[in-house]
Design a protein around this nucleic acid. Structure first.
Lengths: 195, 195
DNA sequence: AAATGCGCTTGATATAAGTCAATTCAAGAT
DNA sequence: ATCTTGAATTGACTTATATCAAGCGCATTT
């Protein structure tokens, strides 16, 4: 119940529209609460990402494992973020990513087919989707630019100013991987930047 | 006139829906043909990206210039691609990017306000927008992964298999910058991969 | 035909970041 | 309380890529 309040608030806030009682009932009917304990997987490489999850509580990481066995974190996610490999979710192809809970995790999850229904029938939901799509496009553009043009140190500074809470919520080695750095390099970087 | 046929075909192909005669008239009313000669700018750093352009003919690059004066290409664009800095276009903020014609360029351009109208009134157009948004999300996810996890050589192989025509249309130093490499490094890379 | 500019290549060197290995430290488990 | 585990740090060394510099074709201009 209070899980759903978080989702309702989020949709209304982002879309700038109100949800009717009917809208809420429809959402509650098909978004299923799911709990994962720390270290459990929301999605495993090779599986199809059947569900998209809205994070009510906890955190997660989306990562790949390369041929040498090294992990690369593509996304770190917190409360009020959506959890999915969108390629797999949209196209129903096997995913190349793993999504793992970094803390005990509570999500509300739904299938692509249900999402299509929401988009059709709930104006606030489709308005939200449009805003999110814009935000994602902008964020991706920025992150890509940072990855291409910035040095390791600049990317770290950037992270600090854009997502300061990340430093509290995620261990350093995860941050390093997210920035495309080895844990050692990030450690040294921090030491030097204090001077 | 034949310019618009390219746009109409594109919208119908991507959306899977047909455009009515009214739809087409509406599009022709507000999409303006614009020609740029090679080396001219579609968008300059610091300006607001007032227009989104649909490329009918030609090619372009989107790039930033860092403090050291080095250019970094974020996007290489060809026929049937959309041209804009979406952050600036959506939010009307000054752009950090430059968009420059690499060949003589013909685009059909429109403002954000007009696009909103199309989304409201032309079903094929809004269906197209949804598909594009999905494709962008997927492409961004892939490119980000490539940038994080792949070596220079793997990124080049990746480019060859995903966009083989890029090699014909863009000079090598542009490809290098797009891959986040110096021209020298790409040159050496090619030599070694032949062995 | 000469001259200019430009993209590509090649060589020598510099630098940023990765790798491997050892140590410390804190947190959880027994 | 002790033991174990894993994160963070630090040092020594390696590697990938950038930088600087020179030279070579090739096209465009004069």
């Amino acid at each position: 119940m209070s899980n759903f309040e978080a989702l309702f608030d989020y949709i209304q806030e982002i879309s700038g529209k109100l949800l009717s009682a009917d809208d809420k009932h429809l959402l509650m009917e098909h978004f299923k609460p799911k709990k994962l304990r720390k270290r459990q997987y929301f999605l495993q490489e090779g599986d199809v990402c059947k569900y998209i999850g809205f994070i009510v509580k906890g955190s997660a990481r989306t990562f790949t494992v390369d041929e040498k066995g090294h992990e690369h974190i593509l996304k770190l996610s917190l409360e009020k973020w959506w959890l999915a490999d969108f390629e797999s979710f949209y196209l129903l192809t096997p995913s190349r990513f793993n999504i793992e809970a970094l803390e005990d995790l509570e999500v509300l999850q739904s299938t692509n087919a249900q999402i299509e229904e929401y988009l059709k029938h709930i104006p606030a939901f489709s308005a939200m989707a449009n805003v999110i799509s814009q935000n994602y496009t902008i964020a991706n553009q920025k992150r890509m630019q940072a990855a291409m043009s910035y040095t390791a140190e600049e990317r770290y500074e950037d992270l600090i100013s854009n997502y300061p809470h990340f430093l509290q919520r995620f261990p350093q080695n995860m941050i390093a991987s997210y920035l495309g750095l080895s844990p050692e390099t990030l450690s040294r970087l921090k030491k030097n930047s204090f001077k």
